Amino acid sequence: MRNKGDFLFTSESVSEGHPDKVADRISDTVLDAFLTADGESRVACETMVTTNRIILAGEVRGPASVTPDLLIQGARDAVKDIGYDQAGFSWRNAEVEYYLHAQSADIAVGVDSAGEKDEGAGDQGIMFGFATRETESLMPAPLFYAHDILHRVRDLRKAGDPRAAALQPDAKSQVTLRYVDGKPVGATSVVISTQHVEGASQATIREELGSIVRDVLPEGWMPPEDEFYVNPTGVFVIGGPDGDCGLTGRKIIVDTYGGAAPHGGGAFSGKDPTKVDRSAAYACRYLAKNVVAGG
Rank of each mutant, 00 (worst) to 15 (best):
D215G: 15
D255P: 04
A141R: 02
F130W: 13
H18G: 01
I107T: 10
H18R: 00
E198P: 00
R25P: 00
D277N: 09
H196T: 01
T135H: 02
H263F: 10
Q174I: 04
G239Q: 04
A165N: 07
N231F: 14
T67V: 10
A283I: 03
G129D: 00
G264A: 11
G83I: 06
G199S: 06
D155S: 01
A146M: 03
F128S: 10
I82T: 13
T188Y: 04
A78S: 14
G234M: 02
I72D: 07
A164R: 01
T274G: 11
R154Q: 05
Y98I: 09
I212V: 14
L167M: 11
G295W: 02
N3V: 06
D6M: 01
K80A: 13
D85P: 08
L287F: 13
A114T: 12
Q73G: 05
A102R: 12
Y179I: 01
E46R: 10
D170I: 02
G129S: 00
G295A: 13
P63V: 03
I205N: 11
I72G: 01
A114N: 06
A23W: 15
D170T: 03
D69Y: 02
C284G: 06
T188L: 00
D181Y: 01
H263W: 10
F9N: 09
A87C: 11
E207S: 10
Y286E: 15
V190S: 11
A261I: 07
D215R: 13
G270R: 07
E116F: 01
K251L: 11
S137K: 02
D106E: 15
F128L: 04
G62L: 03
G199P: 10
S90I: 14
S13V: 04
D106K: 10
A187S: 13
L8R: 05
V153C: 12
Q124T: 04
G115Q: 06
V30T: 09
V60A: 09
G17N: 02
E97L: 15
A283F: 05
E46A: 11
F34T: 04
R154D: 02
R53M: 15
G265C: 06
F236N: 07
E219T: 14
G129K: 03
P184D: 08
V180G: 03
M222P: 03
R25A: 12
R92K: 15
C245R: 11
G199C: 07
